[in-house]
Design a binder for these strands. Structure first.
Lengths: 341, 341
DNA sequence: AAAACTTGCGAAAACGTTTTCGTTAAAACA
DNA sequence: TGTTTTAACGAAAACGTTTTCGCAAGTTTT
């Protein structure tokens, strides 16, 4: 194992000071052209690379940002991640990734661990546990210690920082309206994410659309499910008992599972039953019949979040205002909805 | 923005030396119990955390590993990633993630960038570009410079290092045999990954199974496709012209796309046409009919890879032998294959 | 009472880099 | 010739930490 080459090594070779080597490699005018030339050549030949740890210590900047996501086995978060990675890499930043598995404790301990100087800032989407717990001190502490945070998707009003959110309410609103306009009478809502902020916003959008269109909100048409629930068992009686003819699913999983159950039950899609889901992964696209989906532009969300953080890190002034960017959604009409005309 | 608290701050407060503070916080016996007590208390109250950049510089260890993957929008790689993140986090390691987008150039430049002291080691799956280019000097250089590498899934014999591979050949072999034993006569092979090592191994397994079972290898039944190809256009004439009654897809994408094309063509699955794919993501499971799949245990692959690297980093002795772990595959029988009895 | 040992702490080096501020010698000027 | 500029380099501080070694005072042993 070769020792990594340092300024000191080079200095010894040419019998000059470390300062001279450093300046030579930075092409300083203080050093004579010949000295610079020979030092630069030697450095190149021996693949000298400045130790970035030493630089980080000196500059108090690491050019590294932390990305904390609840769960990466989720097409929205992976896409957001891809967007962040792209922007970070384009701007010369590295990313350290952590997965909280929806746990508040893990989120807190990760942030404690990472507030040790290795990071210049955070991008985070809150874990379900944190949104239940409603304790955000680990975040405000980080901000107080000078670590900027950008929150995306699952955010909270209790922390002041930059935010990138999806227009969940409007997305659900439009989807619901689409179902209404295509003739659906009893629109059910299924959610696996009733605990998290975006789930609540989508629910609001659903209700508002009903009311704005002169329908009553029927709470018995709202079904909150858990990840381990058996959909067939849960959904079949639910659908039959209520004369439901449309489902708005607030997350990707429940949309796909509902579609399966309905396909197996023999109902006609979309004639007897319409479905709209959230999050445009491969799943709703490749399933048969393909599922109409509200796309959240996950990749774009990630890009914007990363760009905001990097801009803040690169800007000199400390006190620029926090921004909240809202990313619009789109309804992708596929085979589980009737078209409007 | 509060300044981060350092040993120096604490030293000034109690009018002692930095050394004393450091030793107190590390509970050294050299320091009197009272001094230790008051310093520890103050440190705790003010949330002192050692600057890990300074420690990294001192110890020449960062407790950070780099994970380089070709593409994270791929269920195998995400699962592997999840496994690595889990093991790393359990062992107190952070991970820096980079995505090469299958590009050789990006892979090289990423490694150049990261060989700057920020990482203790790498876990990498080769990009398609690298496997085409067959230039691995960026990897051997890293190893020569003392940065251990664990390669997983897409590996090469040209670099000596720890490896974790999936038993692709045997997986394809068993799948092919299953198709033969269930009565299929003309088994086609479709691959989007003919360029990468694992694609070649799977192809070998397919051929070997045919030969071992007294069948001839018919090269015209082997179809290499590209990501942008239109499957319907490509596949329909292919299937009709060759009397094909089974397909072995070497990757997840082509399996799902082939299934769609076949469903649309009206053929009966699995009576007229059997399908087996690779990589057990959500897609093959949720699609109708669900696709029989060879699972590669991605998560386990990731866990093993990370554990090997971390063990090597933690071990004192330099020269422990390189290992190659082979992870067995399983065939998950679903609705696109006939059962054997 | 002298010698040896213990306790409690500080100075300084080390990790690798950049940068500010000398310092020396040669060159330019008066 | 004496003074000022300029060119080329080095010393040292700084980033935050750990650790080795040394030192003084007090304590124990002979």
């Amino acid at each position: 194992m070769k020792q990594r080459i340092t300024l000191k090594h080079i200095a010894k070779i040419f019998d000059v000071s470390i300062a001279t080597v450093s300046k030579s490699l930075n092409d300083s005018h203080e050093i004579s052209t010949e000295t610079k030339a020979k030092i630069q050549e030697y450095a190149k030949e021996h693949h000298y690379k400045p130790n970035s740890i030493a630089l980080s210590l000196l500059n108090k900047k690491t050019k590294t940002i932390g990305i904390i996501i609840p769960n990466i086995l989720n097409s929205f978060f992976v896409k957001a991640f891809v967007g962040m990675e792209k922007v970070a890499s384009e701007n010369g930043f590295s990313i350290i990734t952590c997965i909280t598995n929806e746990s508040y404790e893990k989120e807190v301990s990760i942030m404690e661990l990472l507030k040790n100087g290795t990071l210049d800032g955070f991008i985070i989407s809150l874990s379900e546990g944190t949104q239940v717990e409603q304790d955000f001190s680990h975040l405000s502490n980080a901000i107080n210690e000078g670590l900027p945070i950008v929150m995306f998707d699952r955010v909270t009003n209790s922390v002041e920082c930059d935010k990138v959110i999806v227009d969940d309410m409007l997305g659900a609103y439009h989807a619901t309206e689409h179902l209404i306009n295509s003739g659906c009478k009893n629109i059910a809502l299924i959610s696996e994410i009733y605990n998290v902020s975006v789930g609540k916003l989508r629910l609001e959008g659903y209700k508002k659309a009903l009311i704005d269109n002169g329908r009553a909100v029927n709470e018995s048409l709202i079904l909150n499910v858990n990840k381990k629930d058996d959909f067939d068992v849960l959904l079949n009686p639910f659908l039959k008992s209520k004369k439901i003819d449309a489902i708005l699913s607030l997350d990707e999983n429940s949309a796909v599972k509902a579609q399966r159950t309905i396909v197996h039950s023999g109902m006609k899609i979309p004639e007897d039953m319409s479905i709209i889901g959230f999050t445009n992964g491969k799943l709703p696209r490749f399933v048969t019949p393909s599922i109409s989906t509200i796309t959240q532009h996950g990749r774009h969300v990630g890009e914007v979040a990363a760009q905001i953080l990097i801009d803040r890190l690169n800007s000199e002034e400390e006190d620029s205002e926090y921004v909240t960017k809202i990313i619009k959604t789109n309804l992708i009409e596929r085979a589980t909805t009737k078209s409007l005309n």
